[in-house]
Amino acid sequence: MTTLTRKLALLAGLGLAVGATAYVPPAAAQGYVSVTVGTRPPPPRYERRPPPRSGYVWAPGYWNWAGGRYIWIGGRWYGSRPGYIYRPPVYRPYGHAWRYERERWDRDPQWRGRR
Rank of each mutant, 00 (worst) to 15 (best):
G15E: 06
E47S: 13
P52L: 01
A97S: 08
P60F: 05
E101T: 10
M1E: 06
A17M: 13
W63I: 08
I73R: 12
E103I: 02
L10V: 15
Q30W: 06
Y94N: 15
P82S: 12
L8M: 14
G95R: 00
R53P: 10
Y46P: 07
G79P: 04
Y23C: 10
R104T: 15
N64C: 03
G15I: 14
P60V: 07
Y86P: 10
P51I: 14
T3Q: 08
W111P: 01
E47K: 09
Y91G: 15
R49F: 11
G13Y: 03
L4E: 09
G75Q: 06
Y86E: 09
E47D: 06
L8C: 11
P44G: 07
W111I: 00
L4F: 06
P50F: 08
G38H: 02
Y94C: 09
D106Y: 14
V35L: 04
W105D: 09
V35D: 01
R107H: 00
R81W: 13
E103H: 04
L16V: 14
T2E: 11
P50V: 11
W111T: 03
I73F: 02
D108V: 04
Q30N: 09
E101H: 15
S34I: 00
R6W: 01
P89N: 08
Y84T: 01
P43V: 01
K7A: 01
G79N: 11
A27L: 07
G74F: 00
P88E: 01
A28R: 15
L11Y: 12
G15H: 09
Y78S: 13
V24I: 02
R69F: 03
W65A: 06
A20G: 10
W58Y: 10
W98K: 02
A20M: 05
